[in-house]
């Protein structure tokens, strides 16, 4: 059994948002329009945050952190969000009743609510990902549909899933190769190696959520002006 995780190197991230747009195209995330955007309702499963202090600025891409001990699943009254055996925190749209308890519970603001029916079926969409109706919560799924497809392909070819078969859309697009994706339990994998790096940290570690998205801190020699 795998444990899917991600490492994002903040030293490399240039805040270009290629990951954001790749995610939108892959997961049929619509633009909500100027009116809704002004009300803070932009849906961006992968969202690039900006952290600014006196001496430096850094960009921090934030997908769903796929906590190993997720606070959001515990509050869901209908079991619409749950941690699957491979560690991916899933969201079943058809089961969601839109109570938004999970949104309140998530310390990372990684969940988004469909206040209106933002998206209609249309050309150019990815048929592997369902279009969300009004009144449900949605979030990053680590491109779970890609795992299903990769597994099917591997089965058809009569082999096991190997590293690189399953990569999220954001990791695939990143022009500075800041995002590494893979199986954290596979000791030899790049993602497991980086997650053990002395630069690695997790967001809100003190909360005990044990996110499976790790960040690599920037290196020295960065902040002289």
């Amino acid at each position: 059994m795998a444990l899917w995780g991600m490492v994002i190197d903040l030293d490399r991230c240039t805040g270009c948002q290629a990951c954001v747009m790749a995610c939108k195209a892959e997961n049929n995330v619509p633009a909500v329009g100027p009116k809704e955007a002004a009300r803070g309702r932009i849906i961006s499963w992968m969202h690039v945050l900006r952290e600014e202090s006196e001496e430096r600025t850094r960009f921090l891409p934030r997908p769903c952190l796929q906590c190993d001990d997720p606070p959001c699943t515990k509050v869901c009254p209908v079991y619409a969000t749950y941690r699957n055996p491979e560690g991916i925190v899933a969201q079943i749209h058809a089961r969601c009743i839109g109570c938004r308890f999970c949104m309140a519970a998530c310390p990372y603001n990684a969940k988004y609510f469909n206040w209106l029916r933002y998206q209609k079926e249309g050309p150019g969409q990815n048929p592997d990902v369902s279009v969300r109706p009004k009144g449900v919560v949605e979030k990053c799924t680590f491109c779970h549909h890609r795992l299903q497809k990769a597994r099917e392909r591997a089965r058809a070819e009569g082999r096991d899933l190997v590293a690189g078969d399953y990569v999220t859309a954001c990791a695939e697009a990143c022009p500075t190769r800041a995002i590494t994706f893979g199986d954290l339990l596979d000791e030899g994998s790049e993602v497991a190696r980086l997650a053990r790096s002395p630069r690695a940290f997790r967001l809100g570690e003190e909360l005990g959520t044990r996110p499976k998205v790790f960040y690599l801190a920037e290196m020295e020699g960065h902040r002289r002006v």
Binding site: C16, A18, V20, A22, A25, G122, P123, A173, P175, R177
Partner: peptide
Amino acid sequence: VNRGALCPKAFGALQLLY
């Protein structure tokens, strides 16, 4: 040129087309 990587603009091509 890009070895599989892209920038955000590339994905706009879908919306340009449709």
